[in-house]
Design a protein around this nucleic acid. Sequence first.
RNA 1: CGGGGUAUAGCGCAGCCCGGCUAGCGCACCUGGUUUGGGACCAGGGGGUCGCAGGUUCGAAUCCUGCUACCCCGACCA
Length: 491
Amino acid sequence: MAKFLTNREESYTQWYNDLVIKAGLAENSAVRGCMVIKPYGYAIWEKMQGELDKLLKATGHVNAYFPLFIPKSFFSREAAHVEGFAKECAIVTHYRLKNSPDGKGIIVDPEAKLEEELIIRPTSETIIWNTYRDWIQSYRDLPLLINQWANVVRWEMRTRLFLRTAEFLWQEGHTAHATSGEAVNEARLILDLYASFVENYLAIPVFRGRKTESERFAGAVDTYAIEALMQDGKALQAGTSHFLGQNFAKAFDVRFTDQNGKLDHVWATSWGTSTRLIGALIMTHSDNNGLVLPPKLAPVQVVIVPIYKGGEGAERIRPYAERIKESLANLGISVKFDDRDTQKPGWKFAEYELKGVPVRIAVGQRDLENNTVEIARRDTLEKTTINADAVVEYVPSLLDEIQQAIFKKALKFREENTFTTDNWDEFVDIMENRGGFALAHFDGSRETEEKIKDLTKATVRCIPFDSHDEKGKCILTGNPSERRVLFARAY
RNA sequence: CGGGGUAUAGCGCAGCCCGGCUAGCGCACCUGGUUUGGGACCAGGGGGUCGCAGGUUCGAAUCCUGCUACCCCGACCA
């Protein structure tokens, strides 16, 4: 089976690319570095959006929309921020085309040069804070808790479907607060919200922690992140939340009057998750037969495949299958009855496995006679036959069980591939051969981090929040260390 | 931006070295029939500016020059 996919063991990269394309999630477009997200992939994104949007609104955030274009001058207001993004910006310089004088095609009209170039947003802090200046005068205007669903552009050298493309979709939150403490709490609240969203819906276990200086967002005082482990032993940052201090408020002169009549700059956060999560989803759960989707995010949770001989056979099965479909749909389950006569059952089985549909129900003449159905679960590929009347009990609990099971499996994998080490040679071995996370002591200096990266390609993924104080010696330099940090090679 | 590779039907490829009839194969597609409990079979059929632009030649998918795009590996990054 699954002879259409490259095996994971053969080439993880190739397996991933094959899967994204063959499962119909996305494909490369005619535009360099940009993908087309196909309906099935977009449906997964919509499910993610739906849940995350609900969680954000439940915590008091509201949606808004800011421009795609950012005047170049805005960008240079915050020094660290420009520096961080300067190398990957797309820039609009003209606003008109005209017919080429030689009659061949069309050219940029040199007369139509913009006074000031526009940057296509790689992130929206600058345009948003420029706007917030007008929205905030008093502590009564705070906190300002805004989210936007948008596309952003970062001109990447090398792209990979979902993981790194020149344009991608995300949500970015931008909040303003009266106090530093309140802003820090917001950044932490969102990180926790991301973590529980990713663990509960995507069924991906994550570490939460603080980034080191070199991994920090350009313009942030502090960056928090959730980090997940992919099946090939590489880490993937699945969401970030930044405490921006007063950096952007100062750069854009956003001040407010507090209860005591005192004027001060506001405190800020920003945070985001992107379509990259779809890449994380694939690389956490899927196998050589195709996608494995967590039931909570699967666009189709249950598929019913009829098995019959001849046209009358099909008509005999139909009402039976339709009845099961309806009973599940009434429970709010997304169920599809695939009654196409153009494909054979075996073909459909393979197809839905490739697409990661969590539960498959097969109904044939045999089932009709015995009042049964055959149920197959995607995660384990196990099949079982149950009484048709029990479907409404069995399937919902099976969906729950699959959701739990794939999380547990991913968690077990992560635990088995998270190593605590105090030995440099072992550390190198983990990074070069075994893969996975290494919890090791680190002296906290930029130079040491850089050196470790040069030697092993590993970076500090985060300083985990739940790591307890534990004195030790830096894995590389032997300098004193206060606690262990999480290292890995990363996407 | 460095190194490697590829570009021929919707997809995957052969043909290219050593130029020569109508450019071929598998999958997919269309028609008809037989099939249907793990990617069915038979018969027939449609589909190509051989990435683009020049050049060499009686003749170019094939040789030469230039360009472009994409993929993989590095450096950089969510």
